[in-house]
Simulated assay, not measured.
Amino acid sequence: MADLLHKVTDVEIDPDGKFKYILVRVKVKNGTDHKDIVRGTKSAEYHNHIFEKVNPAMEALGLECSCLGGGKIEHNSKEKKLRVFGESTGYGKADHAVTVEKLKLVFKDYEITWSDDKK
């Protein structure tokens, strides 16, 4: 069952711009194995719109998920920079330090920073 988690990508974010993101804990139903994933997109007006897309996709794989919080990401692909900040009104602030560690796995040659700034 744990190999189900390996099928889920750690990070899926837009290639450029400033957008909302959520940190999601995905786990095997009736199990203890889990992993945290980052999802973010400009197309989401609110953080829950991202979760409303992630949750059914995970359920289809036989996984369940819960939102650990949210914030914003500023992605500058030309300068290879990512900035994580802010919080979600509905879900609260994600642990940006965890988010940054996930981003570092994918964006190895990027400068990645985070702060508790709102903007």
Rank of each mutant, 00 (worst) to 15 (best):
D36Y: 05
V106N: 14
T9N: 07
L63Y: 01
D33I: 03
K78D: 01
E52M: 02
T9E: 04
L82S: 05
Y46K: 07
K27E: 02
T32V: 14
T99R: 15
G31K: 10
E12D: 14
L23T: 15
K119C: 01
K81M: 07
D36K: 09
T9M: 01
G70S: 05
Y21K: 12
T99E: 08
G40S: 10
H96G: 10
R39S: 08
K29N: 08
T113N: 06
C67T: 00
D117Q: 12
R39M: 09
E101G: 06
K104D: 12
D10W: 00
H34N: 12
Y91H: 12
V38G: 11
V38N: 11
E59F: 03
P56M: 12
K104C: 03
E87S: 13
V100G: 06
K118C: 07
G40P: 08
G62S: 02
K81G: 06
V84Y: 00
V38S: 10
A94Q: 10
H47N: 04
Y21T: 13
V28L: 08
L61G: 02
L103I: 09
E87F: 09
E59Y: 02
K102L: 12
G71C: 04
H34P: 00
R25N: 08
P15S: 09
L63C: 05
D16T: 11
D33Q: 10
K27L: 05
T32G: 05
S115Q: 08
V100F: 11
H96C: 14
P15C: 10
N30E: 03
Y21M: 09
E64G: 04
I37G: 10
D10M: 02
T113Y: 05
L5G: 03
G17N: 02
G40L: 03
V98T: 15
R25K: 14
I50F: 05
I13H: 05
S43P: 00
G70K: 06
T89S: 13
V106W: 02
H75L: 05
I112A: 08
M1T: 04
E79M: 06
Y46V: 14
M1L: 08
A60W: 00
K78N: 01
D14Y: 09
V24M: 09
D36V: 13
V100P: 08
S115I: 10
H47S: 01
D117R: 15
K35A: 13
K42F: 02
D14A: 06
T9Y: 04
V100L: 14
K80D: 00
K29L: 02
I22L: 10
S43L: 14
V28P: 03
H96L: 13
K93P: 11
T113H: 05
I37C: 08
D16M: 09
K72A: 11
K118P: 02
V38C: 11
K108Y: 12
E101R: 15
Y110D: 04
Y21Q: 11
L63S: 04
D16G: 00
D16Q: 10
K93C: 15
V106I: 14
E59N: 04
E45K: 15
K118Q: 11
K18W: 04
V24Y: 02
E59T: 09
L68W: 11
C67Q: 02
E111C: 12
P15D: 05
K102H: 14
H75R: 05
V100D: 01
V26E: 10
K53A: 07
K18I: 11
L63I: 07
A94F: 10
V11R: 06
V106T: 15
A94Y: 07
L23Q: 13
